[in-house]
Design a protein around this nucleic acid. Structure first.
Lengths: 356, 356
DNA sequence: CCTGAAGTTGAGACCGGTCTCAAACTGAAG
DNA sequence: CTTCAGTTTGAGACCGGTCTCAACTTCAGG
């Protein structure tokens, strides 16, 4: 008795046909529910297929049709709850249409993203849902489209290519964040994001079509309303690791006139910034005010509860998936989920301290 | 000009062969790096393939080999950071070996899990990594193995089938949790888990091979050491939704002699329990002590910082993937990652209040 | 009984790799 | 100049569905 037993051979259309005593073509028609098949043949084939436990080989099917029943999802970091939740939305929506999800993580690395798209195309996925890591390097996405694959972007947009893009509208919420802090009396508002750029932030710089651009713009706009100006050195980008995040915090707090409020661009940044503030022994909001993007359950449980900008991440995933399904020719409920972010005021914003 | 332009036809081996002026078989050998190929043919084929931008069609490859270069991952809830992190581990490990991940979410529903495995087999995935939702209903996993697919379980085990299973060792940590609480003076220790069972918990009940079983056993053992007994009605299972979780909390706290400490079986439960405690206006640890499983960054930032059992979730994912790769005949670094949970004492455990 | 349209049926091509097999070629030994 | 092993090569089968096409059956209408 060998260790590796011969795996049971799967029943094929030909097997079913033989068992039913009809031709392969008829069996295929009966099983596939297309073409003309007599009652008699139909029942014979059904019986035989059940008898043999026939399951269509999806690979063979994809071979002829040229596309598989799976869609590729490319994200920067699945470990991030933001993408975890969006992925859940995509997955839920797409399952009903009979697709499975092939997931690739890119670590926000462009080369990895290009490779991932390449690989997924070779797998002949029906379509792609991508959160692109660059808004300018987009050749791989264009080529995917040229090769006849539907591509939908989410969370972030790109320049130069016309692609369906599903993003949350931050314009209102971001402006409100700016006003909230300005009204509370803050002028030195720090902004921390993991967005990768080549140099430090400059006013009016093109931050691509990332949500970060909208969020920064909102605060700038609030400053303009208040007829004031936002010190650009308070915008700290490239905080994508523990070290760089710590450096960004230091940059904001170890200066003659330190930031009196910090806006955290996502929940990972918030976690880091909160830890940093805690280690420094600063109190929120007495010593420093904090606003974070993304409203996860824990933000309400920290002390004090965080003022956050909530965004419909799950729905964004669903909408992205729907957009893709539409491109793939599926009829999808017309109802569109509203994707607007909104400010949730809790207790982490106060007036700047007197000494400032 | 039609809306839908003709997608560019992908170059095939036959195209490359024609361009290189050799037979399809030779071109395939040159591209696949097998069999005997002369220097001259090799360079001709390489040149032609680059010229045409040839990319092998993975579907066609899977067709002949009978397996795709993707592995199926079946989990209960990707939205849960626990699985998100494990998934990341699986994904990282498997990518190096050239596989992609097909992810299916089951919502901890057995029927969905059975369907998912079925679907993945039809897609001819090379292997499966599953966090099974039942430890007894395992026919689908057995059939996957019979059909020649490698199957590896993680997070939880099953009965009756010999399958590689990658789990974190909770024996020590669970016992320590029990001792910690007992030593602090607690006797009415609540336990809340989302594990689905048919009825309420009974001492010695078979909780399957889920981590929950180990965790409950550890506390029971600590009670035995202390020559005391654990009131089984304090073990609240089936808290898998907002409602059921709220009911479990009520069950523990709205009784003549309420629990003085609560152990939360995972981070989702912890989030719910913490919210519940907060809404009741109870103080931690003065009024009630809390211990949670899974050490995510936020657990240190809540007030007070949570005493938790940390577990190497990412490594568990990696190990599961490695076990699968080994089964698939890959040489994988022999070094095994230790998978032991350990208690991290912070500030959410104190003595039970006097009035109790 | 003949005709034609509609309904059924089976043979076999096809998708794009992989791989077997036999033929052709190479060069060294005899 | 043979002979033979070893290398290189091309033809074509194969995987398992899908689908075209031609042929056959059936039956109403003439």
């Amino acid at each position: 008795m060998t260790k590796r037993e011969q795996p049971v051979r799967e029943a094929t259309v030909a097997d079913v046909a033989r068992a039913a005593g009809v031709s392969k073509a008829q069996a295929a028609r009966a099983l596939g529910g297309y073409g003309a098949v007599s009652e008699q043949v139909l029942s014979l084939v059904i019986a035989a297929s059940e008898q043999l436990g026939y399951r269509p080989n999806q690979v063979a099917r994809s071979m002829t049709t040229g596309r598989s029943n799976s869609i590729g999802v490319v994200v920067g970091d699945i470990e991030n709850a933001h993408f975890g939740l969006a992925l859940r939305g995509i997955s839920d929506e797409v399952r009903d249409a009979g697709y499975t999800v092939v997931l690739v993580n890119t670590d926000e690395d462009l080369d990895a993203e290009v490779g991932a798209v390449q690989e997924l195309l070779q797998q002949r996925v029906a379509g792609l849902v991508v959160a692109p890591c660059s808004s300018t390097q987009t050749a791989h996405l264009g080529s995917a489209q040229e090769r006849g694959r539907a591509v939908v972007l989410f969370d972030r947009g790109i320049h130069g290519l016309e692609l369906d893009t599903v993003r949350v509208d931050f314009a209102d919420a971001a402006l409100q964040v700016g006003r909230l802090l300005l009204d509370a009396g803050h002028r030195r508002i720090g902004y921390v994001s993991s967005l990768r750029t080549d140099g430090p932030y400059e006013p009016g710089a093109d931050l691509g079509l990332s949500p970060v651009a909208d969020r920064v713009r909102g605060i700038e706009q609030a400053f303009t309303e208040a007829e004031d100006e936002w010190d650009p050195t308070l915008v700290q980008l490239n905080a994508f690791s523990d070290d760089t995040l710590a450096a960004a915090c230091a940059e904001l707090l170890d200066r003659p006139a330190p930031a009196t409020a910090v806006v955290c661009s996502d929940s990972l940044i918030a976690l880091g910034v909160l830890g940093h503030i805690k280690r420094r022994g600063l109190r929120i909001p007495e010593d420093i005010s904090v606003v974070a993007y993304d409203d996860f359950p824990w933000t309400e449980l920290v002390e004090p509860p965080l003022t956050v900008v909530a965004q419909p991440v799950y729905d964004m995933g669903r909408e992205a998936a729907r957009a893709l399904l539409r491109r793939l020719g599926h009829r999808v409920p017309a109802e569109r989920l509203p994707l607007r972010a909104h400010l949730v005021e809790r207790a982490s914003v106060g007036a700047p301290s007197e000494e400032n």
